[in-house]
């Protein structure tokens, strides 16, 4: 408990928990709608936005940087949709294309920024792999201010999102605005991505969306339970990973959290009742006998 007495660690834990919950919840929708890689593309695409936001304002305020990140991730999502809808280039190609081009543009801007004499931009590089230890109260405030409304929106549109996820045709036949709801859900996923930029970094943020959902999926067949589980998984892996990284030397936060998530997912794949691999193997053996 001495761990939590430390101010920095408390902030880190709080922020990562918030991030874990939000990305766990929204990751469920992404994974179930087979958009797991969308998160990867959009988190990479956030980089130019962060740099532009910093260049325009000259401030490192988390809200401004997050706005910039969300803006360019949004633009990327929009481009992605228009490329897949109007041309024969398939979704996987457009995802990879947008990911690499946006990220490359971000690197160009970043390297251009580094020529400037003001030293404040030094910290921008930590957005690649995340740096939880740098978190201060203001960051956590912004994360909570963005994360709680996001969760509320999910609760508000719970039924609609559920239908949209499992049976989009049925949703359309019910008269639901399917495109509008898709855009809303994508926007919420962007919020989740943006929240994680400082903690996990743009390169590995996608795992924060995919892993908790993939792990939670193994334990249940109900969306409600899955989302709660994914939120818990995300939060616990986030907190543990961030704390390890903040206390140990030379461990970037993003990779540490991803490894915690990976361990959690592996355990779920192996030991989850009914779906887990060990469970399956034992049942097969029983059947043989």
């Amino acid at each position: 408990m001495e761990l939590f007495a430390d101010y920095t660690l408390r902030m880190v834990a709080l922020g990562s928990a918030m991030l874990g919950i939000v990305s766990g919840v929204l990751g469920c929708f992404a994974v179930l709608r087979r958009q797991a890689l969308l998160g990867d593309a959009m988190s990479h695409a956030a980089l130019p936005g962060i740099v532009v936001a910093f260049m325009l304002t000259g401030q490192r305020d988390p809200l401004i940087l997050m706005l910039g990140a969300a803006g360019s991730a949004w633009l990327a999502a929009l481009l992605l949709m228009s490329v897949t809808r109007t041309t024969r280039v398939k979704e996987d190609s457009s995802l990879a294309l947008i990911l690499a081009v946006f990220f490359g543009t971000g690197l160009v801007l970043l390297s251009w920024l580094q020529q400037r004499p003001d030293a404040a931009q030094a910290g921008l590089r930590s957005f690649l792999f995340g740096q939880a230890a740098a978190m201060v109260a203001r960051d956590v405030q912004v994360m909570v201010a963005l994360g709680v409304p996001t969760l509320l929106v999910v609760a508000l549109f719970w039924k609609q999102f559920k239908v949209l996820t499992f049976d989009p045709e049925y949703a359309a036949s019910l008269g639901l605005p399917v495109r509008g709801l898709s855009v809303l859900l994508t926007s919420l996923i962007i919020v989740a991505i943006v929240l994680g930029l400082q903690t996990v970094g743009v390169v590995l943020m996608s795992a924060m969306l995919v892993a908790p959902a993939a792990a939670a999926r193994q334990w249940t067949d109900r969306l409600g339970v899955m989302i709660v589980l994914a939120g818990c998984f995300g939060a616990s892996a986030g907190v543990v990973g961030a704390l390890i990284s903040a206390t140990a030397r030379g461990l970037a936060t993003g990779p540490t959290i991803v490894l915690c998530l990976g361990a959690l997912t592996l355990v779920s794949f192996l030991f989850a009742p009914n779906r887990g691999l060990i469970w399956r193997a034992t049942r097969k053996m029983q059947l043989q006998v």
Partner: peptide
């Protein structure tokens, strides 16, 4: 999801 899971872990 498998792609989105495997490569971040190995890269991390």
């Amino acid at each position: 999801a498998a792609i989105g899971l495997v490569f971040p872990v190995l890269f991390s």
